[in-house]
Design a protein around this nucleic acid. Structure first.
Lengths: 392, 392
DNA sequence: CGGGATTAGTTGTATGAATGAACTTATGCG
DNA sequence: CGCATAAGTTCATTCATACAACTAATCCCG
């Protein structure tokens, strides 16, 4: 059954969440009266709900601002700092790290280690990550309550079993990630991390970064060009993960020529096509392209045309006209944008009526770590009543 | 704002819809007590809601069945026949027609005309359809209240403007369909039809046909092989249309070799590849394949491999492992299934953990017409309170 | 054939959440 | 200093659901 019986309490839960999200989505800290206005709830109702949220640490009151007009000054409501925190962790091909966010979006702690993890040993890597996790827990202290941890991985993840089924670029297969991490970290042992795909979490962070002033919910295809190529769909502000969370695997799309997209437009292929050392990192390519060297710009343009063709299929299939370039592709965007756009314009059937757009990611560095923390905080926002019930 | 304030009335609306859908989804006609059991609502609440639904013609009571066990016999609740009806109309490349369904799923009226509409004149065609619409309205008489009409079209439809933007296989562009139909039909003039894509509506009918006894909500990719190739996504029983309803356009996917899927696996290409007359219809191909003639089976197999590759991209992108073959492909399924499945198995990254399935459509003949009617009836089921308010 | 058991559905009271109006609080302005 | 204005609180009212007791209709068993 999708739907379930709505009882009296459901009303309250719904409105509690509505009030909370209204405050957090607002550009400037709103008063109770503002919230009543935008939600349509009565002032009395909003007051009661806000009081519960403040008591539970999900909202905070600021000191009344210096009043500008007549009338009793409003009490501004904001996301509380340091009451609730969540951890986003990540293991990727050339780094691993943790980041801790609170509800106000502040980074309470962060630690990243750069190292080459191709063909690495899951146990050893997760032991390193476990240490970072415990350090993070110690660093933030006991004051902020930890909501949970999400671990971002560049592959196919089995959320229910807590197993990384396949991560080609790490060389991991059927890795019992949650168990290994719990063995190395008391934090992970107490509250087992949720697993998710790296591109999915990056897209979630991007969706949060793009949420406009009026609470608009953006729709876009996020393309994460790391060593591998992942994509994720955001529809009306919600991440679309599919049945198992495996949506967005475009790296293995077979493109004209018979190779996969990753073999044509992945970072290694890109560097090789430009005549550069594939292990030398992206900087050389960016520099060369900046100097307008033909071998570099032509390699990027070819990759862009192929990427654009693959994305055109995506756009035709899911009817989303916005593309966001993330990861490697964000840095290459100045040269990548045009070929991608032009491929979209020719191959997207609906392009005359919904012009394709290609943007650069705004979510900052290592967005999957942010997205992982946001995913955990989002669980609380989705059902604050449930959270308050657990928190006396 | 996605969410809106929940007031007292929202509760009632929600539960009213819940009760209605619970009755309609049930395998055998349930009693009020059964509904209370499955929904978790109190008997008294269910009784009150059912009474309202019966009074509004959205549910009907049957005569108590011969009691089998002790206790007061139950009053079985069923979908009412002939109180509410909706029209599904369709213009496709080689036929047009209308079908009228009531809430019980009975076909109250149906009329189909087969004719070649490639490069046809929208005005003339819609005038024919308008006549069929008015005949349908006359045929069912005044007793069933008409909920509305959906018109299925094989192309890109602008729902808001009521315009068919592009239908390559009809040769229509920017056709002002709703206006033209209203000019030819008093029924359409009174209540303007909703426009939708043919594959989307066929998928909707398929979703309804696949809804299991326990109200399971199937997820699948519906592939409609007509003259063109359309696809539609059904996720958890809900049609996924995308922002404008333009999702599912896979016919113009560029496949290895550089041509589009339609140019390789469309009906015309298929017939030509088998050495048959493209205008001669599908029967010749089915006959030849049935006789195991190599030119026919090989043509189908090649198309199947290409279709499978395109579908693998879809499955990788949206993480849905079920494929349903509809339209032309349903008839060719005996020869098409294996090559499609084998392409899926090799190209779907997650196939070891979520085995691809390829099924044949079960929604019957001309499913888009059924789906169009269901779309209109679905509006009432989604918000019965709204409908009851309009119906004194 | 009659009374107890059993199940369906109804009636009436209680509960809880939102509402709206009146009220209190806190400020600016003349 | 008093009035206008706006934020927030208090309280009686409304309304949908829950719960419990009740009526209705049937079977079963002695």
């Amino acid at each position: 059954m999708r739907a379930t019986a709505a009882r009296q309490g459901s009303l309250r839960e719904h409105n509690l969440g509505l009030v909370l999200r209204t405050v957090l989505d607002a550009e400037v800290a709103p008063s109770r009266a503002d919230v009543a206005g935008t939600t349509g709830l009565a002032k009395a109702t909003v007051s009661a709900l806000v009081d519960r949220l403040v008591a539970g640490g999900l909202l905070a009151e600021l000191a009344p601002a210096a009043p500008l007009r007549a009338g009793r000054p409003a009490v501004p409501l904001v996301a509380p700092a340091g009451t609730l925190a969540a951890v986003g962790a990540e293991v990727n091909v050339d780094y691993l790290g943790v980041r801790v966010l609170d509800l106000s979006g502040r980074v309470l702690h962060e630690r990243v280690r750069h190292l080459d993890l191709r063909e690495s040993e899951p146990g050893a890597v997760l032991s390193m990550l476990g240490t970072l996790l415990d350090e993070a827990a110690a660093a933030i202290g006991p004051a902020p309550r930890l909501v949970g941890t999400t671990l971002a991985l560049p592959g196919l993840v089995d959320r229910d079993a807590g197993i990384l089924r396949l991560a080609p670029n790490l060389g991991w297969r059927e890795a019992d990630v949650v168990r290994l991490l719990a063995a190395a970290s008391s934090t992970a042992a107490t509250s087992p991390p949720a697993l998710a795909n790296e591109a999915d979490l990056a897209a979630r962070a991007e969706a949060a970064a793009r949420r406009g002033p009026a609470g608009e919910r953006p729709s876009f295809v996020y393309v994460s060009g790391e060593i591998g190529i992942g994509a994720a769909l955001v529809l009306d502000g919600e991440l679309f993960g599919g049945r198992h969370g495996w949506a967005g695997e475009i790296g293995h799309t077979v493109v004209p020529g018979g190779r996969t997209l990753e073999q044509v437009a992945g970072q290694d292929a890109l560097l090789r096509a430009a005549g550069l050392d594939p292990d030398g990192g992206l900087d050389a390519l960016v520099d060369a392209a900046g100097r307008r060297e033909a071998h570099a710009t032509e390699a990027i343009e070819l990759a862009g045309r192929t990427l654009g063709l693959a994305l055109a299929n995506v756009v035709n299939l899911v009817d989303v006209s916005g593309i966001v370039l993330g990861g490697t592709y964000a840095r290459l965007a100045p040269w990548l944008r045009e070929p991608v756009l032009s491929a979209l314009r020719t191959h997207v059937l609906a392009s005359p009526w919904a012009a394709p757009q290609v943007d650069v990611a705004r979510a900052g560095e290592l967005p999957a770590m942010t997205g992982g923390a946001l995913a955990q905080l989002g669980r609380v926002l989705a059902d604050p009543a449930d959270w308050l019930a657990e928190t006396p």
